[in-house]
Simulated scan of single mutants.
Amino acid sequence: MDTLALFIVMAIFSLFVLLLYLTPTLMAVKHQHQYKTWIITLNLTIGWTLLGWLFVLIWSTRKQYYLV
């Protein structure tokens, strides 16, 4: 495999991993989650751990309950 092909494969793989890592953040922003700032912050700080990433992912998918 030549250098250019290897670079393209690695760039695509890196983009995929980055999008996977930021999935909770993207979901919270898309759905205008009430705590999206907290979700983004935690995703960037503890998201590199599996438990932290799972916690933030689950939190970003939970429905928002408002006390009216």
Rank of each mutant, 00 (worst) to 15 (best):
F7T: 10
F7E: 11
F7H: 08
M10I: 13
A11G: 12
A11P: 07
I12M: 07
I12N: 01
I12C: 03
F13E: 10
F13W: 07
F13Q: 10
S14I: 08
S14A: 13
S14M: 09
F16I: 07
L18D: 02
Y21L: 01
L22S: 02
T23I: 09
T23E: 15
P24Q: 04
P24N: 05
T25I: 06
L26A: 15
L26P: 03
M27F: 04
M27S: 06
M27D: 02
K30E: 09
Q32T: 05
Y35T: 14
Y35V: 12
Y35L: 14
Y35K: 15
K36G: 04
T37N: 12
I39M: 08
T41D: 01
N43P: 06
N43V: 01
L44V: 13
L44K: 05
I46L: 06
I46D: 03
I46R: 02
G47W: 01
T49A: 14
T49W: 08
T49C: 10
L50A: 10
L50Y: 02
L51H: 09
G52W: 02
W53P: 14
F55H: 04
I58W: 01
I58Y: 03
I58P: 01
I58F: 05
W59R: 13
W59C: 14
W59K: 13
S60F: 03
S60E: 04
R62Y: 11
K63T: 11
Q64K: 10
Q64Y: 08
Q64L: 06
